[in-house]
């Protein structure tokens, strides 16, 4: 069995976020980076499946991004991935989900993966589209937002998180792609011996240009912090007059009293 896990390196959510000079991404000098949390569940699920099957499946980890992305890749290898593909792309943040998915699909097409794990979404962009588009481009079945996973004889049974606290169960035949929700499992810590072993694992390096890329469908026009709200208005004076002023403001500026 061949398994692919797609991971992304994202800014640590506790970093300080400021738009960069082009105003299309963040100023990275202030940011610390880590593996997208959703993807940690994807890696863990793949490794658990490999363990269930006595170590037979080969797990390839794929990530698109600049040089620093290798840190996230190495973590995934230390968690139990067998080999990795790093698609080097310093301008990855300008690509929309369609372009990212088409790059992944272009790589995966010839590889014959039986099962692809991705995170449900990324913590920075949060589009939740890459996984499903890859499935569509490869023509494989797909289930999203996994909170449960089991495998038996070529079929996977997944529990999906639906709206309103409802769960759904689906059965899919391989090949398939699944996207993983937080809480699907308990991602393991990379141990020191496994970090050492990961150093010897293959990380193949491709450039974005080597893959068939698509033109963008959406472009980021600008990113900016929300405008600072004013300090608010404090009404003072005699209570009746305050009520009158409040009524006036509500009538004038809102729809509540119309």
């Amino acid at each position: 069995m061949k398994i692919l896990v797609c991971i992304k390196q994202v800014p640590d959510m506790e970093s300080r976020f400021r738009p960069n000079g082009e105003k299309t991404w963040y100023d990275e000098s202030d940011l610390a980076f880590r593996m997208n949390e959703y993807d940690e569940y994807a890696v863990e699920q793949a490794v658990q499946l490999k363990e269930q099957l006595g170590g037979e499946p080969e797990i390839t980890v794929l990530s698109i991004g600049p040089e620093r992305t290798v840190e996230a890749i190495k973590k995934a290898l230390a968690m139990g991935g067998d080999r990795a593909v790093h698609i080097r792309d310093d301008r990855y943040y300008q690509k929309d989900p369609w372009q990212i998915a088409s790059m992944i699909a272009s790589y995966a097409k010839g590889e014959g993966f039986d099962l692809i794990f991705t995170g449900m979404q990324s913590q920075d962009r949060g589009s939740a589209q890459v996984g499903v588009i890859v499935a569509e481009l490869l023509g494989v079945s797909c289930a999203t937002t996994l909170v449960g996973f089991s495998y038996d004889g070529g079929t996977i049974t997944v529990k999906r998180e639906l709206e309103g606290g409802i769960k759904g169960v689906a059965k899919l035949k391989l090949p398939a792609l699944v996207t993983c929700q937080l809480g699907l499992n308990t991602p393991r810590y990379p141990t020191l011996p496994n970090i050492m072993k990961a150093k010897k694992k293959e990380i193949a390096s491709l450039t974005a240009a080597e893959l068939t890329g698509e033109a963008e469908l959406t472009a980021t026009a600008a990113i900016y912090p929300p405008a600072k709200k004013g300090g608010g208005l404090v009404l003072e004076g005699e209570i009746g007059a305050q009520v009158d002023r409040l009524m006036g403001i509500l009538k004038e500026k809102t729809a509540v009293l119309r």
């Binding site: 880590r34 620093r68 290798v70 840190e71 190495k74 973590k75 230390a78 810590y189 990379p190 020191l192 970090i195 990961a198 150093k199």
Partner: peptide, 15 residues
């Protein structure tokens, strides 16, 4: 190095 950063972050998470 990248390897030392991966190690540091993993240890930090555990701690």
């Amino acid at each position: 190095s990248q390897d030392h950063k991966v190690l540091r972050d993993s240890v930090r998470e555990f701690v």
